[in-house]
Amino acid sequence: MRLLIALLSGALFGSGLYISGMTDTNKVQGWLDVFGQWDPTLAFVMGGAIIPMAIAWQLTRVAKRPVSGGSFPPAPMPELDRRLIVGSVLFGMGWGLAGLCPGPSVASLSFGGVPGLVFLAAMLAGMGFAPMVKARLDRAVPAE
């Protein structure tokens, strides 16, 4: 059951990324490029995605547990920390440079050719380095 749900969700996610055009780096970079030929598509994708997801979060209050058992995720943590900010800035830089983020890098793998493979390999390597970088970040003396 869990695996069937994971497959259905993955297939919907991949279809959505592909249909919305988010596997096209021009659309992503076009959205980030406010001073160039600005492309509003990404805002519609985000807006569209948030609607069913917001309903789902509401349903987690009504449903006792997930279909396949277990429990729903805990409430989000309220406080910000350095990891969140530094990590998001680094991610944003990479996202802007190539116009790819983790989901689309997998969804476009079958037609992305060599650039797609190079990006994915580098991303996986980066994810491998992350625990080390995280440890270093936590050891760094706070700025104030």
Binding site: G87, L90, P102, A122
Partner: peptide, 10 residues
């Protein structure tokens, strides 16, 4: 870009 996305998101 890949390294930044990998490290940053994690």
């Amino acid at each position: 870009a890949g390294l930044l996305v990998g490290v940053g998101t994690r």
